[in-house]
Amino acid sequence: MIPPVRRIAAACALAATLAACGTSGAPEPAHHAPAKPTASPSPTRPPVLAPGPGGLTPVFEHGPRTLGKTVALTFDADMTADEGPRAAAGEHFDNPDLIGALRALKVPATIFMTGRWAEQYPAQARSLGHDPQFEVANHSYSHYAFTADCYGLPTVGADHMRQDVERAYAALRQAGVPRPLPYFRFPGGCYDRQALRALQGVGVTAVQWDVISGDAFATDADAVVEQVLNGVKPGSVVVMHCTRSAAPTTERVVRAVVPELRKRGYRFAKVSELIAETNGRR
């Protein structure tokens, strides 16, 4: 049981609660490593941030505060490497009605998808990957933590971190996502210098958030709506989830939040647009 929405204090904790933990340990080795995403923005490729000091993987939390009222809604498609039996028993880790609501409301969004989710729902992954309204990014293959003590998640060893990310890209492409973006969201939002160093050769920008919605396991949609509306600022990145069993109110939240933010003058954007604005490309 997680605490009520209003009492969540850390972004990492909420995102991490979506994973039902299995045995600890690294995921199985990838058999086919995908082509690495580019680390150099160009007119035909998504923008990324420049590496941090010492070449560390850069971290993005929100866009500029001074370039107008723009907000990015992001959704984590979570499924851990060991949750296959639960899906086979009928648990729904997808949320087609939420995606339908986003399409009906014409809201662009960024979906951070685990490789295991893409394997479980390849038709949905392919549909999202081919829809220009959405962009699909990497949320690891296993949804195991990249740091120790990340709210009970099993952990990936430092020597398997890059492999886990590359395995996710392979799974996304195998499911039919033609161009998964060079953006990575750490499971649970947990990372440290070791994790940033382990991924520095992959060419990704790590994407966090500055507004946590509180939709995980929430039953009071109005409380989640209030938390989002109170937190959004120009350039904000909002984290939500598209997992029916673990975030059952999210569709209702989106249907309430979107018109209200538009009424307040906000425009919805993908993460790639906020990163481009941060880079001064817009």
Rank of each mutant, 00 (worst) to 15 (best):
Y183S: 02
P154K: 01
L181M: 13
Y151T: 08
N138F: 06
T147V: 15
P178T: 11
G176V: 09
H143I: 01
L181T: 10
P154N: 05
A137N: 03
L181V: 00
Q133K: 07
A170G: 10
G115Q: 11
Y169Q: 06
A118V: 06
Q124S: 12
A175T: 11
R162T: 14
V136G: 00
A158L: 12
F146C: 01
G115F: 10
A137K: 02
D149S: 13
F112D: 04
A145V: 02
E135D: 12
H139W: 07
Q163A: 15
D159S: 15
Q163P: 04
M113Q: 10
Y183I: 04
F134A: 12
A168M: 13
E166Q: 14
E135W: 09
F134M: 09
I111A: 00
Y183V: 00
G115L: 11
A148H: 12
E166P: 05
P178L: 00
A118E: 00
Y151E: 12
Q124W: 08
P182M: 06
A170D: 15
R167Q: 14
Y144D: 13
Q174T: 15
N138W: 10
D149I: 01
R167V: 11
P182T: 01
D159W: 03
Q174I: 02
I111L: 11
V177F: 09
S127T: 15
A137T: 05
T155H: 02
M161R: 11
F112G: 03
E119Y: 04
A175S: 15
C150K: 00
R126C: 09
R179M: 08
E119I: 06
L153Q: 11
H160K: 14
H130W: 05
G115I: 08
A118P: 03
R126V: 03
F146K: 06
P182K: 04
M161L: 14
V177L: 03
G129F: 06
Y144R: 15
G129W: 00
L181E: 14
L172F: 12
H130K: 14
L172K: 08
P178F: 08
S142V: 07
A123R: 14
V177A: 02
D164W: 03
E166G: 05
A148N: 14
Y151H: 15
H139C: 04
V156A: 00
F134E: 10
R162F: 07
L181R: 15
T110Y: 04
L172N: 01
G115E: 03
T114F: 08
R116A: 13
A158Q: 15
A175F: 01
G152S: 11
S127I: 01
A148P: 06
S127C: 07
Q133A: 12
A118Y: 05
H143G: 03
G157M: 05
